[in-house]
Nucleic acid binder design. Structure first.
Length: 301
DNA sequence: AAAGGGACCTGGCTGC
DNA sequence: TGCAGCCAGGTCCCTT
């Protein structure tokens, strides 16, 4: 579910609640949520208990809390994960059916990890140096990443992203441009919604081949993708249903700004043609048949 | 080595 | 009404 704008909205909300707070209690009633934590649920809890959060950072769709022992609590939301913050008050928060992990903080705040489809996870892990020696991403000044996220590329809103290098790396691939956009090792943060939005904005069909696109076209595509991510972040993300909400439970309102994703049969907002739905790389892809012409089929070698 | 396909889950919606 | 089948915002692992 959540792509960069949604994860960043949640990161910023979580940072407010977690920064400089001590984790006093940890419960993980659903062991699958900590399945990637090597020591299991009990060790997960004991690694966190008593630690103070010094930073809450993000790269692409991965976010993490840096702890005062120089370890990190890594959080990936998968398709349906949420973080929900409950400040202490006279009334107890209504329990959520899909509560998976609960952290209690020194001031009584509770942080719930809620996840319907259970593809998301939390784990405590070592930090490892970034490959370029530059700060790892949003929310941190340190050149350190959680070890399981070291293979994740910088995202398009990262001030240290190298756009010309990204364009060159993309042209060395031999695949559909949409698959490249979704490859978190090439560029991170883009998922199925914003990939379709970026391709619509750049007037490119999802199956255009990466190695056949001019550097200028790829630069335009990545600039379009950056703009879409930035606008969606300003709108608090895209909520189709209750699966994506911010840490207070509020929906984002970028859905009304979508130009492509989910608009099958509706008129293209540029030319009026009826939008189509196709499957590209096992993912639904929405595009305009006139603005985004399918490339000629290449003869097999 | 890189690229593609299937697996991993729960739940909501559609159509028979 | 019931239920089989399909679909969903992501990543990882295995095979080629």
């Amino acid at each position: 579910m959540p792509e960069l704008p949604e994860v960043e909205t949640i990161r910023a909300g979580a940072a407010k609640a977690l920064l400089n707070q001590r984790i006093t209690e940890v419960t993980a009633p659903h062991p699958r949520a900590v399945r990637h934590h090597e020591g299991g649920p009990t060790e997960f809890a004991s690694r966190l208990r008593g630690r103070i959060v010094t930073e809450v950072a993000r790269r692409g769709k991965f976010m993490w809390a840096v702890l005062d022992d120089d370890q990190a609590l890594l959080v990936h939301l998968g398709m349906s994960g949420q973080l929900r913050i409950h400040h202490p008050g006279p009334t107890q928060p209504e329990p959520h059916v899909h509560q998976r992990v609960c952290l209690t903080l020194g001031d009584g705040t509770q942080v719930w990890f809620v996840d319907q489809r259970t593809f998301g996870y939390l784990r405590v892990t070592e930090l490892a140096p970034t490959s370029d020696g530059l700060p790892a991403g949003w929310g941190t000044a340190r050149a350190l990443l959680p070890e399981p996220a070291v293979h994740i590329a910088r995202d398009l809103l990262d001030e240290h992203v190298d756009l010309p290098a990204l364009v060159r790396a993309t042209r060395r691939r031999r695949t559909d441009i949409k698959r490249a956009l979704l490859d978190q090792n090439l560029v991170s943060g883009v998922g199925n919604i914003y990939a379709d939005e970026a391709l619509w904005a750049a007037r490119l069909h999802a199956t255009r081949q990466t190695n056949a696109l001019a550097p200028k076209r790829l630069t335009e595509l990545y600039q379009a993708a950056s703009a879409v991510l930035r606008e969606a972040l300003q709108a608090g993300g895209t909520s189709f249903d209750a699966l994506y909400v911010d840490v207070a439970g509020n929906a984002g309102y970028f859905e009304r700004s979508l130009n492509a994703y989910g608009r099958v049969g509706l008129p293209c907002l540029r030319c009026g043609s009826s939008m189509r739905r196709e499957v590209v790389g096992a993912r639904a892809s929405y595009s305009c048949p006139r603005c985004q012409r399918r490339p000629a089929v290449r003869a097999s070698v």
